[in-house]
Design a protein around this nucleic acid. Structure first.
Lengths: 339, 339
DNA sequence: CTGTTAGCGCATTCAT
DNA sequence: ATGAATGCGCTAACAG
């Protein structure tokens, strides 16, 4: 038994004493006489007519919706991305629907197959982990996808990624310039896209600045969360005394801040801390957090634009964009008594 | 020109050499013979058949989607709510779609009319401001709505709200017990649902604890954000020296923490600070923030359950729930040297 | 157990 | 400029 009776083109047409085709034309901006337009508008108004989305979609094949899948709504970096995407998408006359997936690639695959049923015209995806299965699913998706984050070379999908290596390099350079010698890395899981990129960047920077590669200075949290960060940092401090910590994101960096405070270490005097993503959290932290801006907002906005273009022109050449990072220096690395 | 040709029931039926009805039955768990089931599954698999959502929705009147509208994705309290809703909704076999509206009621009205086109089966709405227009729009919505937050008595909509008055009372009681005398309020805009509730609770508590109602101890930020909070608190400290601050949410409370630190005041020795919503932010703050848990997660979960029930039974009696608050005490109000 | 058929609401082609 | 008719893909009556 279908839903409660509602308005419909036919009802409006009957009331206005015209054909459904005319109603459709008037309401969608087709050509119609002054008088007919008038009658139709009146009838539609009186009946509180609202066009039915599924009928229109069934007919036209378009939903005018764009989906954004984020792995963790609690991570402020995704908040930045949502904000950025919202703007672009609205301007292109799409509605944005946000789906929260877990970090499990299977969640994304499920979402993809769900979307393939026609809930949206396109998807912006920022996968934490990329598996072969996920790639297969993306490849065989009938709906356009733009990926935020790195992607294997041979996957012909629009994507826009950060330059983590350069970003981590910026942080390390800044720390080295401040005279730091023992720079630890607090990373998230290395089987994730950001985790592996951060690690690679860290190792490259060690080499570049002639710093020793000390395993006891590298810890991996079980997730990119505050709680996981606290544990990881506690472990780190149990086995070493770094004079600087680079964290894979701002949440982990705040965890370092709190853990350091708990052990009586002063920031930045004893230990400097750098976060990553440059989210609101960096500003709110005490001391405020120096953070690498990996261009999340720009990446998200760019991805949205790519998707809109891709939807308009499915045959357009694949584009891969890289957004350059920058460093936002705040209290957590700035000593008055800089050496 | 409709979208690129895809799979369809008819295609599967043709390949399997059966009728579309049989395919539909098999795929939806109707009764069918072993052999037919086998043939259909094979054909569907081979063709990569995916059912079309809009066609099904058009036919059944259901979308199996529930919409959640949040006013500010950047506010961690909404993150709590999203998490809570996600769980309930998934268990009831609905997909959740999140829409970010602004604080402007018009945004909600727009969203409502959009949803009335049939994008979702129900809506969970947590409006910041409630205007007559919004109420009209909710009343005339053809889709079930559950409101998180207070609502005028005469609006016959399911809703679940916090008990802000008691919540603020809890905070004040705690502060008074610690010997605080000059308790300031850092509120958000009072023309909002939470803003007015917080103010009322504060005034009631002043009376209850025989505290003077001093206007210079009450400031109103232009929004429930960190940035607005900094300005408001700076204004407050410019004109008075409270020994405690109650903030209308955790973001404003963190702003108070930072502003106090900037002026050299110690927390909690000189000034105690209490936040509200008990979000992750309270834990991350330095010092960690005592916060009133207004039951956001519980409210959201309850709202989701109410909505699922309402969708199943549109004629069910209207329910209004109130979730009791509790206090999470942390460093920002705990002096070692408690008087 | 399986097939035939109608129609959900709409945009669009084809007549007029 | 307007109306009649078609079919998007699907589910559910109904018939056999």
């Amino acid at each position: 038994m279908p839903a409660p009776k509602r308005s419909s083109l036919a009802l409006v047409a009957a009331r206005a004493g015209v054909s459904v085709a005319s109603v459709s034309r008037v309401l969608n901006g087709g050509s119609a006489s002054q008088e007919l337009t008038q009658k139709v508008r009146e009838a539609a108004e009186a009946l509180g007519y609202v066009p039915d989305a599924s009928a229109r979609t069934l007919r036209t094949g378009r939903t005018d919706q764009i989906a954004l899948a984020v792995a963790d709504v609690g991570n402020p970096v995704y908040v930045q991305m949502m904000r950025a995407v919202t703007g672009v998408v609205a301007k292109a006359d799409y509605r944005l629907v946000v789906s929260s997936t877990g970090s499990d690639p299977q969640d994304q695959i499920d979402l993809l197959s769900s979307l393939n049923r026609g809930y949206a015209d396109g998807l912006i995806l920022s996968p934490l982990r990329i598996t072969a299965d996920l790639i297969d699913a993306m490849r065989s998706s009938r709906l356009p996808i733009v990926v935020i984050g790195s992607l294997p070379e041979d996957v012909a999908l629009d994507n826009v990624r950060a330059d983590s290596a350069t970003g981590v390099g910026l942080a390390m350079e800044h720390l080295v310039a401040q005279g730091r010698k023992l720079i630890a890395l607090v990373n998230g899981p290395v089987d994730t896209v950001p985790g592996s990129a951060r690690l690679a960047g860290y190792l490259a920077a060690l080499e570049r600045f002639d710093l020793p590669n000390a395993p006891e200075l590298q810890v991996t949290a079980t997730g990119f969360t505050y709680r996981a960060g606290r544990k990881a940092v506690a472990g780190l401090l149990g086995g070493s005394r770094p004079d600087a910590i680079v964290a894979a994101n701002d949440l982990l960096a705040v965890a370092a801040l709190k853990e350091l405070a708990a052990t009586g270490a002063r920031v930045p005097e004893d230990v400097a801390v750098v976060g990553m993503d440059d989210t609101d959290t960096a500003e709110l932290a005490t001391p405020s957090l120096t953070s690498v801006d990996l261009g999340s907002a720009k990446r998200a906005a760019a991805a949205a634009k790519l998707l809109v273009r891709r939807i308009a022109d499915p045959a357009a050449p694949v584009r891969r964009l890289v957004i350059p990072p920058s460093l936002s220096v705040r209290e957590s690395t700035l000593q008055e008594t800089a050496q």
